[in-house]
Design a protein around this nucleic acid. Structure first.
Lengths: 287, 287
DNA sequence: ACGCTCTTATCGCAATGCGATAACTAATTT
DNA sequence: AAATTAGTTATCGCATTGCGATAAGAGCGT
């Protein structure tokens, strides 16, 4: 009964709109007759398996997704039946099944980006022996789409699907810098300039200045703004109209690289890699 | 006129029967009061974005997931609102959003396997300069969980989330071979021994013999049974009780490797890598 | 053994999501 | 261009579907 309300950031897409996660439980009929509540709840449950907590019990699922236990019961039952959740009959706890990766598979195969980029990314990683990644912009965030880690273990192993704010990441800035003015402004309007480290630039004007520099230089460089001890460089993958589709980036450690070294030896690699991928993609028009 | 009847008695409104590859519903729509149909349909729509087709229109979505257009309308609306689908207002078509990768992220972070394995896999790939992967068993199939491709472009670029039959893949056999007898039998019972190439072993007894050999040798070797021109070697990652959690595998091309060379130079790598990962995982008990 | 907590099963009700249809808009044909 | 068509959005009344509460059942700890 703890009235804890876990508002999850579910709907960053549309600007206005109603706070949907808010009234899911105590919901009086809302004014959106097309919105299917059970679907939202179901996906909410899938999202509840967030932290590195292991198997969840029914009660905890209900609490985390702020739904009634009856709903949790029905939803878990359905998800188990569909194969997305697995249940340990002994402990009566649930955990995600490998079928969750189906979604990633479908997504990655819905665009040629993945397949085309892989060999170039592999080659780039071998050239500089550092972690290379490809990230897409999704609203004010970037999402890791490809990740080829170096042997060195990085701080928080960034995984496919990881989301980070665009304004302070190299991949994010590399895409923001090539965006049309109005779209950029729209995204920055929606951005929460929260510092991730003491070195994160939180001033919008200053970020915009960095974007101009990135545009001019052809790459974005971020120095310990995301994680202390980490330097990242990224360049945009552009479609035929010069619109950014994603960014190729390299992350490395201040223990082995200086900003100057990165600028000199890493930046050319990401720019060249991004250019090659861009060229291989020509002809395919995203929306 | 009361033509609104519904002869659907014969066609229980099970969620998207056709499009779902698995036996999602042998007939669950029937009497299963806990089964939430709208949730199944919603997930079915997400799955409809399967091939490399690009953006889908409402009509096509409805057809692919075998739901009414009304349902398609409501579901897409909901999914767009939740951020899983993106809509191009000009063409009125939908496509998956990067948010789909959230699921992969949650799944990969629900177990320590991913983080622990990454550096070892990276190191293995650098040792043999071939594609290294980690796959988990999910029923009679294996699912790719980690993929570190070589620079050489492989036939069908295997992606995270890709599913293949366990009985004819190296990663699959490496896990089957270490499974308790009853579980193995259960999985083989459910296996459809369909050949993927002319060289696929489709005789259950012969597959079982190969499993014994794999068990004895410590690794599984598959020669062009999945794709022509491809040799794969894999070894199991075991938990404290000797139960397989996943498998480390290397895929390579017959153009550059012979079976003997793979056995001699690749097998030791996967075995050693699997052993290292296994040891790093001790203490964590999956269910 | 007896509480306790959490999970599974059951039930009656009405809100929710359903399918059909109509209004609309973009793209194609003539 | 006007006319035709394919496809998408909006609306509506109704029964179905999924809802929350409650009761029955399992484990677990003390």
């Amino acid at each position: 009964m703890a009235p804890r309300k876990m508002i999850d950031a579910s709907a960053p897409a549309e600007g206005g709109g109603i706070a949907l996660a808010e009234d899911v439980s105590a919901g009086p009929g809302r004014e959106d007759p097309l919105f299917i509540n059970s679907l939202a709840k179901g996906l909410g449950v899938l999202k509840a398996f967030d932290g590195d907590w292991d198997a969840l019990g029914l009660r905890e699922i209900a609490a985390r997704s702020s739904i009634s236990m009856g709903a949790a019961q029905r939803i878990t039952h359905t998800l188990v039946r569909l194969g997305y959740l697995r249940k340990d009959d002994r402990t009566r706890r649930y955990r995600l099944s490998a079928r969750m990766l189906d979604f990633a598979y479908h997504y990655l195969h819905a665009s040629p980006l993945y397949e085309v980029a892989i060999p170039f990314v592999a080659s780039a990683r071998d050239d500089c022996r550092e972690t290379v990644n490809v990230a897409e912009l999704d609203g004010p965030e970037v999402v890791a789409v490809i990740r080829m880690p170096s042997q060195r273990r990085m701080n928080p192993t960034s995984t496919i699907g990881r989301r980070l704010p665009a304004f302070c990441t190299a991949g994010g800035r590399a895409q923001l810098a090539w965006l049309p003015q109005d779209e950029l402004a729209d995204i920055l309007d929606r951005t929460d300039f929260q510092p991730r480290t003491p070195r994160t630039i939180t001033d919008r004007a200053e970020v915009e200045r960095r974007l101009e520099i990135a545009q001019r230089e052809g790459f974005a460089l971020v120095d310990e703004e995301v994680n202390l001890g980490e330097i990242a460089v990224a360049a945009p993958i552009l479609d035929g109209n010069g619109r950014p589709l994603a960014a190729v980036g390299v992350s490395t450690s201040t223990a082995h690289w200086t900003v100057e070294a990165a600028r000199e030896r890493l930046a050319p690699v990401v720019m060249e890699t991004a250019r090659r991928i861009s060229r291989s993609l020509r002809g395919w028009k995203p929306f």
